[in-house]
Write a protein that binds this DNA or RNA. Sequence first.
DNA 1: TTAATATTAGCACCAGGTACTAAAATAAAC
DNA 2: GTTTATTTTAGTACCTGGTGCTAATATTAA
Lengths: 188, 188
Amino acid sequence: MSKKGMSKKNRHSNLLERIKLDPFLTDEEFSELFQVSIQTIRLDRLELGIPELRERIKNVAENNHHKVKSLHDKEIVGELVDLELGKSGISILDTDDTLAFEKTNVVKGHHIFAQAESLAIAVIDASVALIGVANIKYKNPVFAGDKAIAKAEVIRTRGNKYFVWVFIKVRQVEVFRGKFILVSFNER
Amino acid sequence: MSKKGMSKKNRHSNLLERIKLDPFLTDEEFSELFQVSIQTIRLDRLELGIPELRERIKNVAENNHHKVKSLHDKEIVGELVDLELGKSGISILDTDDTLAFEKTNVVKGHHIFAQAESLAIAVIDASVALIGVANIKYKNPVFAGDKAIAKAEVIRTRGNKYFVWVFIKVRQVEVFRGKFILVSFNER
DNA sequence: TTAATATTAGCACCAGGTACTAAAATAAAC
DNA sequence: GTTTATTTTAGTACCTGGTGCTAATATTAA
C-alpha cells in the first residue's frame, strides 16, 4: 500500500490523515501499512499527540453519543429567550458552518425556516401542527456565523386555528418573514 | 444507589437497562453499583450475552460513525430521480417518524422546505445560493410515512439570477409550492 | 569520520477483560 | 434439620493493545 522509502515528516502527515479517516486501526496495522516497526508508529503517535486506539474509539463513541442526541433534530431550533404563551416569543439562532452549504457558506434556508416554524409552534403550545404558511419572504441570505433573531407574534385566533407572524433579522436587517397557520389538536 | 437485597433476575433486568443507558461503565463500577462482586457481574454479562466494555464502546462508535455521516445534514434532501440541468428536476422524500414532531406525527415543515430548497439548487448547480423565496404555500400537513414528490422547474433566468418553481405533492395532492430565487456565485 | 537523528528491540507494567477451577454462602427441597 | 441445588465469591493464568523506559542499531547530515 504505502511506500517504504518515506520520510518521517511524510509518514507523520500521512498517519494523521489515515487516522482521521479510520481511527479504528491498531498500531500493528499501521506498522504494516507504513512498513515500519510498531515502535516507530508509537513514537510517531507520541510526537503527534495521537491517543491510543481505545481512547480514539472512546472519543468517537462519546462524541457521537452526544452529537446524535443533540443533532437528532431538535424539537426547537434556536434558543428561546422570551416567551409569552399565546402572544409572542423571541428566539436566537447562532449559526455556524455545520448549518451552511459547504461551497457557498450560506446557511441552508430550511434552518431559518425551522427556527421560524418551531418558534411559531412554541408560542402556541407544543401540541399544535403547522397546516399552512403564507406570505413568506426570504430576502437576504444568512451566512455562517450570523446571529439570527426571530420574533413571533400571534395575530389572530379562530377556533383552534392560530395565525402567527414570524420575522427574522440579522444585524437589524430582515432576512425572513412569514405567516404560519397552526391548529391545535387536543381541544380541551 | 441500588439496593443490596436484589434477586438475580432483578439484577439482570436492571443491568440490561443501566447498560443500555450508559454503556461506558466497567464491571468494577457495576459491581459497586449493585453491591456484588465483580465476578457476579461478569457471570451476569455472560448469561445475558452482554459484551465487555471495550466491545460496547466500539459498537457505539461504529454505529454512530455511520449514522452521523448519513445524518449530518445531507446536501440534498430526498432522492433525486430526474434532472435536466438548468430546466427541471424531480425528487422523492420518503418520510418517517424521525422527521416528524413526536406529539403530532406531522413532518416538520422545514424538511419539506429543505426538499424544495435543495431540489431548486440541484436543478441549477451546486454553486448557487438561495437569496429569496416568494409565493410559498403550504396547505396540508405531511404525516410520517408519506411519500413526498417534488417537481422543480426553472421559469426565468436573468443574468446570474434564477427563478425556480417547486411543487410538492403527496398522493397527488399538493402540499407545498414556492418560488425560489437563486444566484450563482462563480460566473464562469 | 564523526555527530545527530531516526528506527528498532526488549522488558516491565497497566486496564479491562476472558476462561477456567474451586470454595463459600444462600435458598429450596425433602 | 439436613441435604441438595443455586448463587455468589475468590483466585489464577492468559489476552489485547497499549505506556514508559532503556539501549542498541541504522541512516542521514555536517
